[in-house]
Amino acid sequence: MTLETLVEKLELKCKCCWEKLKTTEIKGGYAGDLLSDVMANSKEGSIWVTRQVHLNIVAVASLKEHAGIVIVQGATPDKDTVEKATREGVPIMVSELTEFELVGRIYQLLQNG
């Protein structure tokens, strides 16, 4: 599944790096708000679901080569976060759903190929 499909199916708001949505394939997912946990346990190509909004999430996603970040519950990423994500080419999206609901939906979509 591409990021573009994810954005369409779950009505995500994309905040930056629109040009990457079509070509970025999602290979899996990880949910977490503790950066050391995400750093140690997430895999490259994953979509990362979190409620963190500050710019350190971009460093983590970029180092781990995540497909992108989805921020939950309609939270607004900091301005610095979006700027850094644009520079580093890390797509950031926002969902209105809670972390629990969103992860369930993404998991289902990934299972159905």
Binding site: D33, L34, L35, S36, A40, Q52, H54, N56, I57
Partner: peptide
Amino acid sequence: ELGFGAGM
């Protein structure tokens, strides 16, 4: 607050 401090 920044998501650090899990002791990991």
